[in-house]
Computed example of a mutant assay.
Amino acid sequence: MRGRKIGREPVPDPGSFPQRPYDLVKEFTLALVAAVVLTVGLAALFSSPDETPITLARWARAAPDDFTATAVAELAATSGTAQYGPPYTTTPGAEQKIGPVSLQRAAGVTIPIDTARDFVLRPLTAAPEPASVSDGLTAWRTAPVRRQQQWAAAYADALDEAGGDPTRVQPGDYGPVPVLTSRLLELAKAGALDGELLAAGHFYQTDYTEPLLFLGDGSYLEDQARARHLAGDQWGMMNETGNYPGQPWLWLYTLWYQIEPFSSSGNADALVWGLMALLTLAFVLVPFIPGIRSIPRWSRVYRLVWRDHYRSHRTARRH
C-alpha cells in the first residue's frame, strides 16, 4: 500500500480578504486627546488640594505656646518620642508586643534619638547664641540629670498654670529652661531650626525623621491632621488631604483601627500588623486549603465568567 503524500496547504491570497481604509495617526491622535481630557478632568474633580508643608517654622508662628510646651517635654524626656522605645529609645516596656513577642525590641534601636540633645541643645549650640543662652547651655550640661528633670518638670507645671503662655509664668526655680526654650522658639520662627534638624549628621538634607518626630510630639500637627480628616479614627490611613478619595486598597488595614479591641489597645499597630499578616498568608494559601479551594467549583461561578463559551458549546452540541 502506497502512502499518500501530504503537501503544504496553499497560502491564501491576501487580496481575497475584505479590506477597509485605516488611519493609524488619526486613531492615535484621538486616543491621546481623550486620555488627556480624562486625566485633566478627573484630576480637577478628584485630586487632593495642594496643601502647604507643615514645618517647624509654621508651627512656631501659629502655635508658639504648643511649641514651647513641647520643647520643655523634650528637655524633660517625657515627650512621645522620648518614651516611644525602639527604634528611637531604649525606654523599658514601651515597645508594642504580639503576646510575649516584642517586634520592636527584636529590631533594636536603629535610629537613636536623645530628645533633649537632638531637638533642643544641639540646634542651640550650632546657632550663634547670646551670652545668656551660652550660660544656660553650660548650666544645663553641668547639672545632674535629676536636677535637669526637676527644672523641666517645674517649668512644665508653671506653663500649665499660666495657660501655656510663657509670659504669664510665675517666678520659680526653673534653671535655664525658660532661656533655652525661648531661644529655640526664636530659631524656629526664623526658619533656622528646620535646617538645623535636617542637616544634623547628614550631607544630603533629605532625612526628615527628626523634624517629623518633633512635630509629632506637639498637638499642632495632630490638630491639622484632624481638620483634614487624616486621623487614625477618621480612616486617615486611606484618606488623602481633605477626605478626598485616597487608597481604597488600604480599607481592610485601617478598618481594624476603628473597632475593638484594636481601637483602644496600646498594642494596636503590632496586633493589626499580625492580623493582616495572617490574612495575607491565608489568602496566599487558598489554593491549598481543602474546602475553601473548592468554593468556585461548588458555586459554579466559572460558568458565569465563561458564559459565552458554554453558550456556544451548547449550540454546537445541538447541531
Rank of each mutant, 00 (worst) to 15 (best):
G3H: 08
K5R: 14
G7C: 04
R20H: 05
R20I: 01
P21I: 01
D23E: 11
L30A: 12
A31N: 07
A34F: 07
L38A: 15
V40H: 04
D50E: 13
P53A: 09
R61A: 10
R61W: 00
A63W: 12
P64S: 05
P64R: 03
F67L: 10
T68N: 10
A69K: 04
T70R: 06
A71Y: 06
G80F: 02
A82F: 05
G93V: 10
G93F: 09
K97R: 15
G99D: 13
V101K: 14
S102A: 15
R105V: 12
R105P: 02
A106M: 12
V109T: 04
I113K: 03
D114F: 07
A116E: 05
A116C: 08
R117M: 11
D118K: 08
F119M: 13
V120Y: 12
L121Q: 05
P123D: 05
D135T: 13
D135R: 14
L137S: 02
L137Y: 01
R147C: 00
Q149C: 05
Y155H: 11
A158T: 11
E161G: 04
G163F: 10
P171Y: 08
D173Q: 14
V179T: 14
L187F: 08
A188Q: 03
A188W: 04
A192Q: 15
E196D: 03
L198W: 10
F203G: 13
F203Q: 11
P211V: 09
P211Y: 09
L213M: 08
G216I: 01
S219L: 13
S219F: 03
R228Y: 00
H229P: 00
Q234F: 03
N239K: 12
G242A: 08
G242F: 07
G246A: 11
T254A: 11
Y257Q: 01
I259K: 02
D269Q: 10
L271S: 07
V272S: 02
W273D: 04
L275E: 06
T280K: 10
L281N: 04
F283N: 10
V284T: 08
V284P: 05
L285F: 06
I289N: 04
I289L: 14
P290L: 07
P290R: 02
W298C: 03
S299F: 15
V301Y: 11
V305E: 11
H313G: 07
T315D: 05
R317P: 00
